[in-house]
Design a binder for these strands. Structure first.
Length: 308
DNA sequence: AAATCTTCCAACCGCGCTGTC
DNA sequence: CGACAGCGCGGTTGGAAGATT
């Protein structure tokens, strides 16, 4: 039987979130913690489906979210990880705890894919190399698809001319000038301010239910990661990741827990590595994976002409 | 100044996975 | 063990903003 869409019930609101809704959601999460999303609409009176509430929290209201321009360092990391993991945005996002998977996915689709395509003509992209016979990597699944065939030189030129992402500018004040409702780009962008204002409160957040059901068991959810508060990956840790040469502990798949642990504990080897070792499993890296993890690749990437 | 084109991203949709009963 | 509920993920889309003509 078919699954009933969760958001097609009558009375369920869709579209951009209003400030009032954000405040309601925030105060609820502040009291109860980011879990049990099913109960959120019922307990708050929000005319949103649970999924929408979770998404709103995860992508915008969650404290500590960094918005705006991606740094070259982040860019490099994303390129690396995308090549290694494929379009596993959640896994990739686990390395950039202040970025959401949605953000990374958008950035990849709008910037990096074009950048790589343009800079690596002749179909010699990292991923395409991965498709060569004898090389195996999950990332060989589609990236850099030809969906940008529609892009012509003019578009690329236009892209290059663009200077700064408009959404990064503060437009919260614009909201007051709108008559009916905020535009998605005006109010929703102002959410970053909400997030910023609330940055502190999750330092001692309500404890996540350790038995919280849900979801796949691929590791900590973004909320859980968030709840680690100051344990978010620091710049130093990120750099440490980029210098991670001891690649033997890097799991072959996109397992978020394993990959995250690999970084968090890269000094004493990853938990997943221990797990695997405990099981007597080997985690051999293919030549390509080693190649991908080699920071020199990132350096190469950084030599690419910036269009941002 | 207006019309058109292009880019960007917040939000939605559908599916898969896991836990519970 | 199957049905169901809940959550998370990746792909896609709608529409606003900015750029160009």
């Amino acid at each position: 039987m078919g699954r009933r869409p969760c958001c097609d019930q009558p009375g369920i609101k869709k579209g951009p979130w209003m400030p009032e809704e954000d405040i309601i959601l925030l105060s609820y999460v502040q009291q109860h913690g980011p879990r049990n999303w099913r109960s959120v609409p019922a307990n708050t009176g929000l005319l949103r489906c649970s999924k929408s509430c979770r998404l709103r929290w995860t992508n915008y209201l969650r404290p500590g979210i960094k918005r705006g321009n991606f740094t070259p360092h982040e860019e490099e990391l994303i390129i690396h990880l995308q090549a290694l993991l494929g379009n596993k945005w959640a896994a990739i996002a686990s390395y950039l705890p202040k970025r959401t998977d949605n953000d990374i996915k958008n950035y990849w689709n709008t910037h990096l894919k074009k950048k790589l395509k343009k800079s690596l003509p002749g179909a010699t992209t990292v991923v395409e190399r991965a498709k060569e016979p004898g090389l195996s990597i999950e990332a060989s699944q589609g990236s850099l698809k030809d969906d940008e065939n529609k892009d012509n030189d003019r578009k690329l030129l236009l892209t290059a001319r663009r200077t700064s992402p408009p959404a990064s500018s503060s437009v919260a004040s614009n909201y007051g000038n709108k008559l009916a409702r905020p535009t998605s780009a005006t109010y929703t962008s102002s959410a970053k301010n909400i997030s910023k204002l609330l940055e502190g409160w999750m330092r001692c957040p309500p404890k996540s239910n350790p038995n919280s059901s849900g979801g796949n068991s691929q590791g900590p959810t973004k909320d859980e990661e968030c709840n680690k508060g100051d344990d978010l990956m620091s710049q130093e840790e990120l750099e440490s990741m980029m210098k991670l040469k001891d690649a033997k502990d890097v799991p072959r798949d996109g397992n978020r827990k394993g990959m995250a642990n690999c970084i968090e504990d890269n000094e004493s080897k990853s938990a997943i590595g221990k797990e695997q070792k405990a099981k007597g499993e080997q985690l051999p890296l293919s030549f390509l994976e080693k190649w991908l993890l080699d920071e020199s690749v990132g350096e190469e990437m950084m030599k690419l002409p910036s269009i941002i």
